[in-house]
Amino acid sequence: MSQEQFKVDFIGVGSGKCGSTWLYENVIQHPEVFDGNPKEIHYFGDLYEQQDFNWYKDLFAGSEGKIKGEFSISYMYHPQAAERIYKHFPDAKIIAMVRDPVERTYSDYQHFIRKGDVSRDYPFSEYIRDQEKLKFGYYTDYLAPFYEHFPKENILVLVLEEMQHDLAACYKQIFEFIGVKETSFLPEGVEEKRNQGVNYRFLKLENVLVRTYRFMVKRGLTGFAERLKRSGLAQLVRKINAKSEPLPEMDSASRQQLVDYYAEEQTRLAQLLGRDTQIWNR
């Protein structure tokens, strides 16, 4: 497959902690969509200068005749990702997934604990004092480069809270957008949530698993890392290590602080997408 012939039909660009794993694993169930490449390739982000384009193409080996795509949440936040994607695939369909930034921020906090970057005892109220941790919920800022490079009709922004109201209609919209013929296909287990935050018995063990995955991805071992992540062994370890009780709820004062903080962004995103300002359906 020559570089001129090779093209990717759709690219999911983020955002993190917004259900992109759940979305990707459902989309690749479609029989017309190639399911051989891993999620989180990160090529157009940090790996672009480390790996040549043939490395990226090889991840889609055997995809002839299929709709091809990938999801890497780092693309939304990388300052050069939109331009790089456009350089190689100017006709690609761009998919972004967002959610209430209040909930996204709390989910990110729990993820930082899983990675070992934040202590389990570190209060969420202290965590959100660092505005660097809050900037990722300003979706319109990060979507702007994609709207600058791609025509508006080539960008689909999905809101997690809206999707959950009518999954069949939402996946029909997605399949129409990426260009499959059978748009009424509904993935098996579509109502099952994936990659959710979990309360762990031994947090250090989960820290090791997450850091090992992150180490391999940063060195271009994306396919191997994804196979390891989804292996029966890794899933078994996590199942045994999981506690039965749910994660603690966000405190009400922090919630109100974030609601106020993101109020302007809620309006901006609603205007960008042409939606009602109550976009998160609170």
Rank of each mutant, 00 (worst) to 15 (best):
Y122H: 15
Q173T: 13
T277D: 15
L221F: 14
G189K: 09
Q257P: 02
R194E: 13
I11Y: 03
S74T: 08
E162L: 06
K68T: 13
V27H: 08
K39G: 01
L273I: 12
A234C: 11
L273Y: 10
R114F: 12
G232R: 12
G223D: 12
P246H: 07
M1T: 03
G65W: 04
L23T: 14
Y56G: 12
E126C: 10
Q257G: 01
E226A: 07
E176N: 14
S2L: 03
H42M: 05
V210A: 12
A82H: 00
R255I: 04
E249L: 10
L209D: 08
L233S: 05
Q257M: 13
K229H: 08
G220S: 11
A270L: 10
V210W: 10
E83A: 12
Q266F: 01
R219F: 07
N37Y: 05
R275D: 02
R104H: 07
D9I: 04
Q29D: 00
V190P: 07
K57T: 15
G16Q: 14
T183M: 01
I113P: 06
Q164W: 06
I28C: 03
S2Y: 00
P90D: 07
Y24V: 06
Q257F: 14
E4M: 10
Q164G: 12
R238N: 09
Y106H: 10
F60S: 10
F224Y: 11
G137T: 15
E188C: 00
R255V: 03
D46V: 05
R275K: 15
F136Q: 09
V27S: 12
G45N: 08
D58C: 09
P145E: 08
G14D: 09
G62M: 08
D91A: 13
H42F: 04
R201Q: 10
F60C: 10
R230Y: 12
G69E: 09
Y213F: 13
V237M: 13
P246A: 15
N54R: 15
Y138D: 12
Y262N: 08
V190C: 11
R268Y: 04
K172P: 01
N281G: 11
F202M: 14
S231V: 02
L228F: 14
M97W: 01
G36L: 05
V180F: 04
P123D: 10
F6I: 03
E206I: 11
P31D: 13
P246Y: 01
G16K: 02
F175A: 11
E64T: 14
V98E: 01
T183K: 14
N54M: 06
Q257A: 15
M97R: 01
E64F: 02
Q164T: 09
D46F: 05
P246G: 14
G16D: 01
R114Y: 07
P79L: 05
Q235R: 11
I28N: 05
F215W: 09
E132Q: 15
D108M: 06
R238G: 14
I155Q: 04
L47G: 09
A234W: 06
T222E: 02
Q110K: 07
E103G: 00
S107Y: 06
R255Y: 07
Q266I: 04
P31M: 02
S244H: 06
M216S: 05
Y24S: 12
E161K: 10
N241V: 02
G223S: 08
L186K: 01
D9A: 07
G223M: 06
V190N: 12
H78G: 05
L205Q: 14
G189D: 02
I128M: 02
T21N: 05
L272S: 03
C170F: 02
